[in-house]
Simulated scan of single mutants.
Amino acid sequence: MSTATADVSKRKAWVMAARPQTLPAGAAPVVVGVGVAVHAGVFALGPALAALVGALLIQIGTNFANDYYDAVKGADTDDREGFTRVTAGGLIEPAEVKRAMAATYGLAVVVGVYLVAIGGLPIVVVGLSGIAAGILYTGGPFPYGYRGLGDLFVFVYFGLVAVTGTYYVQAVATMPAVGTFPTTLPPGSVTAAAVTASLPAAGLSTAILVVNNVRDRETDMAAGKKTLAVYLGYTWSRVEFLAMVGMAYVVPVGFALDGAFGPWALAPLLSLPLAVSVSRTVLTETEGAALNPALERVGQTLFVHSLLFAAGLSLPQVL
């Protein structure tokens, strides 16, 4: 374990367990969903804020779940080069982390009640499946994060679902004829633009996981944790990284070529120097000393890209 020490306070340990450095990644897709909604004229403040709070709670709950299950399954060892895990490091008792996980997911459900009243059955399915996916990523008898499926989970839930779900609850909230608790997707509540706009967030979120798994590849192999990086090796994992990052910069060009969006959609390209800089590190390094800062920089790239993309989508409608 990289930095665990006996003198870490309980309060600091809980902050470490929540991993605040990951929260921009949880917020970024919601920001994009809001941008698409503003462009379409369906922005709704209440559902947007609830989607943001719910996304952050699910992110924190998943962080607690990963910390707990990786420790009890023996995946977090003293050789791991990543940020300190509080359960494996003995900073917080496993039972406490497990209770915190349940409480955080419980709060997400409470927030979700409001969104369910607006979005109905589709939000029930998305919310409960998202929580289940967060737990089963490293928990349960067959943790799919240990079988090379973690990248798919992140792409779907932290990209496609998060962006389109944020758009959906706002769109439905502005459709008076829909009423409370729709059981199907009302026409126009999920658009091709929303789905396409989710791809950059999906790609950059997945790129964060790729960096994490490249850094931990050797220790994961030793612990029997078969991430996609374990299966692919360093070269093809880096190809995956470049594909995910590259997609984030191709999609805005497609939007800019659409007359309904125009050149404002190119705003995310302002973040390209960040992406190029961190890519150089990921393409050449495997050690935690280099990849831990890179991990945070990819998260920063995701958040900046998402802010710029949301602004580029929104500005033509508000200027």
Score class of each variant (00 low, 15 high):
Ser277Pro: 06
Thr286His: 09
Gln170Val: 07
Val190Ala: 10
Val211Lys: 03
Ala289Met: 10
Ala294Thr: 09
Gly246Ala: 05
Gly288Ser: 08
Pro252Tyr: 03
Glu285His: 13
Leu185Asn: 04
Arg297Trp: 06
Arg297Lys: 15
Ser271Ala: 15
Glu287Lys: 12
Pro200Lys: 12
Ala162Ser: 15
Met244Pro: 05
Val276His: 12
Ala193Tyr: 08
Val178Pro: 13
Glu287Ser: 13
Asp220His: 09
Leu302Lys: 05
Val251Arg: 07
Phe261Leu: 00
Gly299Ile: 05
Leu272Pro: 10
Thr183Cys: 08
Leu242Asn: 15
Ala171Pro: 05
Gly188Gln: 08
Val161Tyr: 00
Asn212Pro: 06
Ser279Asn: 10
Val282Met: 07
Phe303Ser: 11
Thr174Asp: 11
Val161Ile: 14
Tyr168Gln: 04
Thr164Ala: 12
Gly299Glu: 15
Arg217Asp: 00
Gly224Tyr: 00
Ala260Arg: 14
Val230Gln: 00
Pro293Lys: 08
Val230Asp: 00
Gly262Leu: 09
Phe241Pro: 03
Leu160Phe: 13
Thr166Glu: 02
Ser271Tyr: 05
Gly165Val: 11
Ser237Tyr: 02
Gly254Tyr: 06
Thr196Trp: 06
Val276Gly: 11
Met244Ile: 03
Gly288Met: 04
Val253Met: 03
Arg280Thr: 09
Ala290Pro: 07
Thr227Met: 00
Ala265Phe: 02
Ser279Asp: 08
Glu240Leu: 12
Pro263Gly: 04
Thr183Gln: 14
Leu283Val: 07
Leu228Ile: 01
Pro176Gly: 08
Thr184Tyr: 13
Gly259Thr: 05
Ser271Cys: 11
Thr166Leu: 06
Trp236Lys: 12
Pro187Asn: 13
Val163Ser: 01
Met247Ser: 07
Ala243Gln: 10
Val239Tyr: 09
Leu199Ile: 15
Val250Ser: 02
Ala289Asn: 12
Met175Gln: 15
Thr191Pro: 12
Val190Phe: 07
Leu242Gly: 13
Val278Asn: 12
Gly179Arg: 11
Pro187Asp: 15
Arg280Leu: 12
Thr284Ser: 14
Gly262His: 06
Pro293Phe: 13
Thr191Gly: 09
Val276Cys: 12
Glu296His: 07
Asn292Gly: 13
Phe255Met: 02
Ser237Phe: 01
Gly288Asn: 08
Val214Pro: 04
Val251Glu: 01
Leu283Trp: 11
Gln300Lys: 14
Thr284Asn: 11
Ala256Trp: 03
Leu257Pro: 12
Val230His: 00
Gly262Cys: 10
Tyr249Lys: 09
Thr235His: 12
Gly165Trp: 03
